[in-house]
Design a protein around this nucleic acid. Structure first.
Lengths: 666, 666
DNA sequence: TTGTGGGCAGAGCGCCGACAA
DNA sequence: TTGTCGGCGCTCTGCCCACAA
């Protein structure tokens, strides 16, 4: 058995010491002065304990300091492992024996932008993107390269904590790091996690690639960005499709026992596998599929039994034992565009060996993540993060367009919402809940952060499985369409130029891309029992009344509302609970917007995020005007209802219906 | 399965560049300025490829140079791997992309002299010395710590080449490194080899401990040494005993098949295993033995079958598969002083995966070994070598006393000799051969080296398995006893002091220690059919006639000759071939010798090693005087012959008998 | 004394349909 | 439609002795 781990080289930047060399044992923290700092999705994947005995290496304390402060900190890059900047712990053992621990190393792969390539050496593995996404799950969408995103250090920290399988308090506070960073996403690469095999003190942890997917993203905090980046960011919302031709099955005890083979769901066999020759007795064939390592697996596919069913027999048990599959794990098959079979697995969230706390402190890990972001923010330099979709509690790199949409749909206590969760079979199911409070998750370290600042209750009794706190972009609430971008964006101050696409048409496209569920054709199969967005329309009414929109924009908007109205994911039927309307801070006269490559300063161009103060509202709240829908909107909705494309308004549904998208995409 | 590799910290010393940063692609060689340089016994055990793209790390060529030339070269010690000094290859890929390859890294364990210890962390594994030696084989003896040894870089290079499984020419020449270094042996530690599991380019080679033994030695070249060190060195010759209570068995096909168990040699079971209760039907018991990892193995020991025999059944197949034993490998059992069973294995010399030449160049490896020694010699600093007794073609760290003894027994072409080889069953067998030429093994790089400067032919047809070149200390030839140390050593110029042991008695002890085969009691079981040393006595006669010895020394000498005469390992019966006598360069008047801690300069205190010029001699050569033995010697021999302790002179043995020492030490 | 191989029992793997959820 | 189980044949392991070197 060969276990292999790739080694890469990295971009190096000097470190500088944040503090003087301490005279007594304590943690010595280095301010990373790094272009690119890795934050491992699974901190345990590479975790060497490194000791340098100062006495032995013949360095005085000053020399040691200059070593790390100097410009030649090549140590960081040894063997392709990124080992610097995360937290050096220093302990003075006695008067002559000082020990320095580099506590946190993360393995990085080189970003594929050319100069770190390794021409002529080794094979370049191309990760199958479709299979990667299938393994990542239906809810995972990676923003496109070149788009603008919002990065939440808190969320990153949560992923680290989850990887360490340890209840942490998030580590020490990190000064001067805002709770969110607007970043340009320079690069996204797909990878497979490395697993550690041993993790004793002073023990090299041998590693091997698993089948767990993660993504590496290179982010650069921006203080200005241009029009095109915003377009790209908006486009990104479209990018979360699961492969059409795939099925995912949760493995049963019978599937994984050594007693038999794999029972293939009927429709899966019909749709994915090559058709059997039913003239055979029994019908059987050989199935060959490739996994994420491009390894091929061969199975005997047979149709037999009484009653008849599809089975994978020979080859299956080898696959199960090699991948260490147990009941509860999932396998998925994809037929790609060349009709070749791809094979992925998803391990259930079973207990991973936790990183020994004596090897690396949780604080060091968190500090590393935060320090990387803080330095990047201070210098507008790039940094690298890893996103592990299966272990991270939430996405923490959010497309800017999605974030903006969510932010403009103001929320308040008592508001109802829906949120998507993954089902066992790689489908999606929406659960309903109510916002119970709005408050800082961590009032000490992350004051006024929007990360999970909504406390929620869930309608169903299984609510224990769902988070008690969510962020506004996690939930489905109605988005005021023209707030995707602030109004002035829709009406640039610059005169139209010949050859430049018409602004309105362009904006319409943006909007459509921003609401990918609209699709090219309308679909009413999975519609909500409510057609009314709850409060964004109210906001919109308010806006209309305030005459913020030109006639041109109103015309555009009518299209948008029509589209929204027919989409089932919008709104709830609980008109009675329509809540508060906190007027968004709309564009102010002094804001400047640009088109093309002209720069925009987002810190002033976007509304300031004010802390939302909890307020209780009732339908009878006199401050909440019940505004009628525009006439043409009402007409459109009526037509649709008559055509049976939309369900009738339910009468007294106390139990909210849920909608499940089949894993077979039917 | 947990694969683990320990990580250690090391003593660090700055490197300095030997040359300017090259402007065009070529190998950039660093002169190691190291206190301690590792030379791996198996270069592949740790071999990372390390790349730094200069452009990417933001370093200019000058910065890079200063990086390696500076005093903070902590890179060398990352992760406890010693990576510096062996050969850095630098390649300029294009005008902006420079690559630097650190080509050769060796993993070292920290010398246990205290300051590198790792108190309170991990378990300290204590290698069982007896078991280590049993696994190393009967011919391996490690000089004692504190003794003087002679280190041969050529031999070390041979070990490297053998480890690389590649016919190399020994690599480039290394200037200013003598062919031998007299060193103080500061430290010896016993270890188990690490095996690599994967070795692709850019691939971390995962490693795990094997059952292959090796020794680490810390050597310091000396230009002066004192009397006591010489005594210790002499004592070391005694230190090569195999454990008394042990047996070694070559595994048969039946032993290693999955069909059955292990057939225990009868006498092994009787001598090593706990006695069976023969009242049982059948007699059986549980055997528990520990291996070099302190792992315990349990076997069912049963006495059954027709005819009755000892077998190991349950537990055996697990052991075989775990250790990956195949027919031809050996197992050995030892009963230690506490009657506990120890268990060792020796893999046959089967093909190991050779190190890919693209990963590390053979030249770099050799340069590393030589550079380490050269630097240590130039600075009289310590360096570290690894000796792998099972893979090294020859020992290359020779006790100084053994070397001196061998050197004073001058040899010439045509001379007959015997040499010990290990048998299959861990026994020893002597083969006879004839010196056919004396010449430099490598006249270009190692002119006038004594390493394998004897070309030999072997008497038996299986000679292909034996080396065509040997060194003088490898073979058994007669040593003129008082040349162990030059004569003045026996009669120091300093007056006797009260309380100091009598010189003569002390010297007699030294001599006895220098000839360990004499033992405390005389043994004639394994005596040669010849009682006459071939030429050393001639030398001695010459010395006698030249009146170099005092009466006192003659008295001492008579004892020595008696001892020599009764020992079977001395001489051959081929008096007719008594050959040349090249007078050793005896002590000259200007030499100074000391006792106690007074320093001696070995470069002048020992006779200069002159190149031996091949000369053909015959018994009738008039230049070779046939001198009679002294009267008392003849009388002693006669007495011994009459007492039947010595075999009679054989008459016409053309085929030289060989002597085998049983592996069971019987 | 000990290496090899046949006999043979037991364990486990894995293919099959029965049966039921 | 599909999860589980009994049946059962097959391979492999490993303990026994016979036989022969």
């Amino acid at each position: 058995m060969l276990l292999r781990t790739r080694i890469y080289s990295y971009k190096a930047t000097p470190l500088s010491l944040a503090s003087d060399f301490p005279a007594s044992p304590k943690i010595l923290r280095l301010q990373p002065a790094l272009d690119s700092v890795a934050a491992s999705p699974t901190p345990m994947i590479v975790c060497y304990r490194f000791q340098v005995l100062l006495q032995n290496i013949g360095l005085q304390a000053t020399a040691f300091r200059s070593n790390f402060a100097g410009s030649d900190f090549s140590l960081v890059y040894f063997c392709g492992f990124w080992i610097g900047g995360y937290g050096f712990e220093y302990k003075k053992v006695n008067s002559t024996d000082c020990r320095v621990y580099l506590m946190n190393f993360a393995k990085m792969k080189a970003p594929p932008n050319g100069y770190m390539e390794n021409p002529g050496e080794g094979e370049r593995k191309v990760m199958n993107s479709e299979l990667w996404h299938a393994c990542a799950g239906p809810l995972v969408s990676l923003p496109p390269v070149g788009s603008l995103v919002v990065y939440f250090p808190q969320g990153h920290s949560e992923q680290v904590a989850a990887s360490m399988q340890k209840q942490t308090d998030g580590g020490p506070a990190y000064p001067n790091l805002p709770s969110k960073l607007i970043c340009m996403l320079h690069n996204v690469t797909l990878h497979l996690l490395i697993s550690n095999i041993g993790n004793h003190n002073m023990t090299l942890m041998l590693t091997a690639e698993t089948d767990e997917v993660y993504a590496q993203m290179t982010l650069q905090p921006v203080s200005k960005y241009d029009h095109e980046a915003l377009l790209v960011s908006d486009m990104g919302l479209r990018q979360s499709r699961q492969p059409a031709e795939f099925f995912c099955k949760n493995l049963t005890a019978s599937d994984t026992s050594s007693h038999g083979g794999f029972s293939v769901p009927r429709r899966a066999a019909d749709k994915i596998f090559p058709p059997l020759d039913f003239s055979m007795q029994p019908p059987a064939q050989e199935i060959v599929a490739r996994d994420l390592h491009n390894q091929t697996w061969t199975f005997r596919h047979i149709y037999r039994g009484q009653p008849k069913r599809h089975l994978l027999t020979s080859g299956w048990s080898v696959f199960v034992s090699t991948k260490r599959l147990v009941a509860g794990d999932s396998v998925l098959f994809i037929r790609d565009e060349k009709s070749q079979l791809l094979l992925g697995i998803r391990h259930a969230n079973r207990q991973q060996p936790a990183l020994s706390s004596s090897v690396i402190s949780s604080d060091s890990m968190h500090i590393g993540v935060l320090a990387a972001a803080a330095h990047a923010a201070a210098n507008s330099s790039a940094f690298t993060i890893f996103y592990n979709p299966r272990s991270s509690p939430s996405e923490f790199v959010i497309p800017l367009a999605k974030y903006n949409k969510a932010i403009y749909a103001q929320v308040s206590i008592g508001m109802r919402f829906r949120m998507m969760f993954e089902t066992d079979e790689s489908g999606v199911r929406r659960y309903m809940g109510t916002i119970t409070a709005i408050s800082d998750l961590d009032p000490v370290r992350w004051k006024n952060s929007q990360w999970r600042n909504l406390q929620v209750g869930w309608d169903e009794s299984t609510a224990g499985e769902r988070p008690s706190r969510v962020s506004i972009w996690d939930i489905e609430t109605v988005v005021t369409p023209f707030y995707i971008c602030p109004p002035p964006f829709f009406r640039p101050k610059f005169p139209k130029q010949p050859g430049v696409p018409d602004d309105d048409a362009e904006i319409e496209n943006i909007f459509k891309r921003g609401m990918p569920w609209l699709g090219d054709e309308l679909s009413f199969k999975d519609t909500s029992n409510s057609i009314f967005p709850n409060l964004s329309l109210v906001q919109w009414m308010s806006m209309q009344q305030n005459n913020h929109l030109s006639a041109n924009q109103s015309g555009l908007f009518s299209n948008m509302v029509s589209s929204m109205a027919v989409h089932g994911s919008l709104g709830t039927n609980e008109h009675s609970k329509l809540l508060n309307f906190q007027s968004p801070a709309v564009a102010e006269p002094n804001l400047q917007f640009s088109k093309g490559n002209q720069q925009v300063d987002p810190s002033v161009s976007w509304p300031q995020q004010k802390q939302i103060k909890p307020m209780l509202h009732s339908p009878s709240n006199p401050h909440q005007p019940q505004l009628p829908l525009p006439q043409y909107v009402q007409q459109s909705l009526k037509q649709l209802q008559q055509k049976q494309y939309l369900p009738q308004q339910p009468h007294q549904h106390q139990q909210q219906p849920v909608y499940t998208i089949s894993s077979c995409n039917e």
